[in-house]
Computed example of a mutant assay.
Amino acid sequence: MFSQAVADAWFTPYGQGQTLVDNETCRIVVNPDAQHSHTTHFMAPPEQRVQILVGEQAAERIAPIPQGATVQDVQDALKTAGAETDEADRIHVYLPAALVGLRDQDAVRVLTQDDAEAFARFEAAADPDELDEAYVELDHWCVMGVFDGDELVAATSAYPWRESKLADIGVITRASHRRRGLAVQMVHAISREIVKRGYEPMYRAGVSNDASAGVALAAGMTRIGVWQQFRFGDGESVEQ
Rank of each mutant, 00 (worst) to 15 (best):
D86F: 10
V226K: 01
E236I: 09
W227D: 02
T173F: 03
H188D: 12
A155Y: 02
W141Y: 13
D132V: 12
L217M: 09
D104N: 15
N209V: 04
T173G: 05
I190R: 00
D33E: 10
R223T: 03
A63Q: 11
G82C: 10
F122G: 02
V74R: 00
D73T: 08
A189Y: 00
V215R: 00
I190Y: 00
A118I: 08
I194E: 01
M144K: 05
D139L: 10
T112N: 13
F42Q: 02
A44W: 01
Q57M: 06
K79L: 13
G101S: 15
Y199M: 13
D129N: 13
A183M: 08
V54F: 01
Q240M: 06
M1Y: 14
H38F: 03
E24A: 12
Q16I: 11
M43S: 06
G220R: 00
M43R: 00
A97D: 15
D132T: 14
A213C: 09
V215L: 04
Y203F: 14
A216L: 04
I224R: 01
D150P: 13
K165E: 10
G198K: 03
A213E: 02
D139F: 09
A69V: 09
L95M: 14
P66D: 11
Q51M: 13
L53Q: 07
F230T: 00
V74I: 15
V30G: 01
V93P: 04
A116C: 09
D127C: 13
F147N: 06
Q51I: 01
N209L: 06
S208F: 09
V146I: 14
R27V: 07
M43N: 05
P32Y: 02
A126N: 12
V74T: 09
A5P: 08
L78F: 08
V100Y: 04
Y159R: 12
E123N: 14
V187N: 00
S191A: 11
T173R: 00
G101A: 15
R103M: 13
Q48R: 12
Q113D: 15
A98R: 07
R61N: 09
Y14M: 05
Y14S: 06
E117L: 14
R179M: 07
R178G: 08
C26Y: 00
A155P: 06
W227Y: 14
L99A: 11
E193A: 12
S191P: 04
S208C: 04
L20W: 08
A77R: 10
D89S: 12
A69S: 14
L138K: 10
V110G: 03
E163K: 11
T173I: 14
A5E: 15
A97E: 15
L53F: 03
K196R: 14
R174D: 15
I172T: 07
M186C: 10
E137Q: 14
D76A: 10
R61T: 08
R174E: 13
E60S: 11
A205P: 02
L166F: 11
T39F: 00
V146E: 07
R121M: 10
G68R: 09
F122N: 01
E137G: 07
A59I: 03
S164D: 07
R192A: 03
N31A: 04
E87A: 13
L95D: 08
L20N: 05
Y135P: 02
G233F: 02
Q228N: 07
D132H: 15
L138E: 10
G233T: 08
T156Q: 09
E24N: 07
P45D: 03
A125W: 03
Y14R: 04
I91Y: 01
D132A: 15
D104W: 06
H140V: 09
Q185T: 03
H92R: 05
D129P: 00
